[in-house]
């Protein structure tokens, strides 16, 4: 289970966001470079159509593969009231032949992306990860070296935190609190809910950069 919110930020304000996160986190940012492949089950395979994501972490000296399955979001009146999505997520590390494995099982490549950016891990009432990435598309199959930026002026911000059935209220509170902290720079909401950029971002970014001397801390 994980709690998740997403938002977007203009690339010109990413440095300010990084400064803010650096101050909250204390630890250095981590480099993110992930090749994400979305596979879907072929026709007539499975009780229902299914989807699985293969993530190849290219930031590591030796690329590592993770299989990720995102299940349904928690529903109900209480879930509707909160601005954080709580959903079932299962991950497993796998050997580097995992793509061939799923192809052999009858899964087809739906789309692939390269996500490049950075991440901060914060301990603020829960173990929270903030990821800021630009998305790239590949002109040829799996050609990550030739990837082309999709939206140069916009980057995706995602906040996730692992949760369990008995503590997700606390984790939701922790994530909501962080969202409020970041609110002058960007608006974060449940995945799929488009909120756009916030009008206060430019002023907030300028203030942050002024206070930090214009340099990343």
């Amino acid at each position: 289970m994980e709690c998740v919110v997403q938002g977007i930020i203009e690339t010109q304000h990413v440095e300010a966001l990084e400064t803010l996160l650096q101050g909250l986190c204390g630890a250095p940012k981590e480099r993110v470079r992930v090749h994400e492949l979305c596979l879907k089950s072929g026709p007539n395979l499975g009780v229902v159509p299914s989807e699985v994501r293969l993530l190849c972490d290219l930031a590591l000296p030796t690329p590592t593969w993770t299989v990720r399955h995102v299940g349904g979001a928690v529903r109900g009146a209480a879930a509707e009231q909160i601005c954080v999505q709580v959903r079932q997520v299962t991950e497993s590390k796998a050997s580097n032949n995992v793509l061939r494995f799923f192809y052999a099982l009858g899964y087809k490549l739906d789309h692939e992306l390269l996500k490049v950016g950075f991440a901060f891990r914060l301990q603020r009432g829960a173990q929270i990860t903030v990821t800021v990435t630009s998305a790239y598309k590949m002109p040829k199959l799996h050609s990550t070296d030739e990837a082309v930026l999709i939206t140069p002026s916009i980057q995706l911000v995602e906040i996730t935190a692992p949760a369990a059935a008995d503590n997700y209220n606390e984790v939701v509170s922790a994530v909501t609190s962080l969202c409020e902290h970041l609110a002058p720079l960007l608006h974060l909401s449940k995945p799929g809910v488009s909120t756009g950029i916030v009008p206060t971002a430019a002023a907030a970014a300028a203030s942050l950069m002024l206070n930090s001397g214009g340099k990343t801390l």
Binding site: V47, S50, H69, T90, S92, K93, A94, S95
Partner: peptide
Amino acid sequence: FFILRAHRLVLHADASIQAIMEKLQSY
């Protein structure tokens, strides 16, 4: 581990891959 003998393929994964296979409902 998953083994597809016809494809000469052996996949090595975390034990949680079993839960993923179950959720996919394809096998």
